[in-house]
């Protein structure tokens, strides 16, 4: 946006001469659109936007079909697209696929919520008690460089083969990027904005609530989005050990039974649910946040 020049001094109350440079204020009505219409529009937009992705998908599936049709690989190793589709339909119809998806999503949401709570607490500590955070910082750096999946044997020894080790893996995976983003967001509020609070005689609490916290929101959301993807990927790894449900379990179990078609169904389901979760999160952010949104949220 360029700075515009006013031709002559304007009297008090006169319309601003720079008005041509200004976007119309956002109407509140736009925010009250029915949710269903918004979701449908988003889906249509996603489909239109994904046309290049559709081309690649069709090419990959075509190549896959060709390899199977020419019997370049045995059906035991690489089942045909038709066979995988039939398995997917059967698993969907029986409710088996939904059961595994729900089990995985439930674990991710629980782990994600715990990771968000802990990461927020660490961020607030870094902002309000930087000296205490300095004690914690080396441990966090260490944690950042240890893949949580490497801890699974230890976690099983310590917590058994129940839900706890899976949850811990998700929490550790989601925590690291989220903690970094939240801490960065809370600590990066410039002195210029803080001075405004000082000039208005804000208390420490008001400065945090009215300036530092809203200022950190875009960074917090970026961290949450990255963590969501990380948590989803780590979950599947965690479910591959000692689980009785979830997409990770589905894949490992199918592998043990040499059912490559079910493995592929599980892999595709993981990818689709992950993409859907990411798009849904981005949609909610776009609809609620009016600033700090860049193209990566489109």
């Amino acid at each position: 946006m360029t700075q515009t020049a006013d031709a002559a001094p304007a009297p008090v109350g006169a319309p601003p001469p720079e008005a041509h440079d200004v976007a119309a204020p956002t109407s509140g009505r736009a925010l009250r659109r029915p949710v269903a219409r918004t979701v449908v529009r988003a889906l249509v937009r996603a489909l239109v936007g994904a046309r290049y992705g559709v081309v690649v998908t069709v090419a990959v599936v075509g190549l896959w079909w060709l390899v199977c049709a020419l019997r370049l690989r045995s059906a035991y190793v690489l089942p045909s697209p038709g066979r995988v589709w039939s398995s997917a339909v059967a698993m969907t119809a029986s409710g088996e696929l939904a059961e595994h998806v729900l089990a995985s999503v439930g674990r991710v949401l629980a782990g994600f919520a715990i990771a968000f709570t802990v990461a927020s607490a660490v961020g607030v500590l870094a902002l309000l008690r930087p000296r205490m955070y300095a004690y914690l910082s080396p441990a966090l750096n260490f944690l950042r460089n240890v893949p949580p999946l490497a801890l699974i044997p230890l976690l099983i020894l310590w917590f058994g083969i129940g839900e706890t080790p899976k949850l811990v893996v998700i929490v550790l995976t989601a925590f690291v990027p989220m903690s970094m983003s939240i801490t960065k967001g809370l600590r990066s509020c410039g002195q210029e904005l803080l001075d405004v609070g000082t000039s208005l005689h804000f208390s420490r609490g008001r400065t945090f609530a009215l300036i530092e916290l809203p200022h950190a929101l875009p960074d917090v959301l970026v961290g949450m989005r990255i963590s969501l993807g990380y948590a989803w990927r780590a979950l599947v790894g965690a479910e591959m050990f000692a689980a009785a449900s979830g997409l990770g379990y589905l894949i490992v179990d199918a592998g043990h039974m040499s059912r490559a078609d079910r493995v592929i169904v599980g892999v595709v389901a993981i990818g689709l649910v992950g993409v859907a979760a990411d798009r849904l999160f981005a949609l909610v952010v776009r609809r609620t946040l009016r600033w700090g949104i860049d193209d990566s949220w489109r």
């Binding site: 946006m1 360029t2 700075q3 515009t4 006013d6 304007a10 008090v12 109350g13 006169a14 319309p15 601003p16 001469p17 720079e18 440079d21 200004v22 976007a23 204020p25 956002t26 109407s27 509140g28 009016r290 600033w291």
Partner: peptide, 24 residues
């Protein structure tokens, strides 16, 4: 806002305003 010549811009965000308007 009307006193500083910005009547009608109540809902505009800062990035939607020009430099002079932000000063107002």
């Amino acid at each position: 806002l009307a006193l500083v010549g910005l009547a009608g811009f109540e809902d505009a965000l800062p990035h939607q305003l020009s430099g002079g308007m932000r000063h107002r």
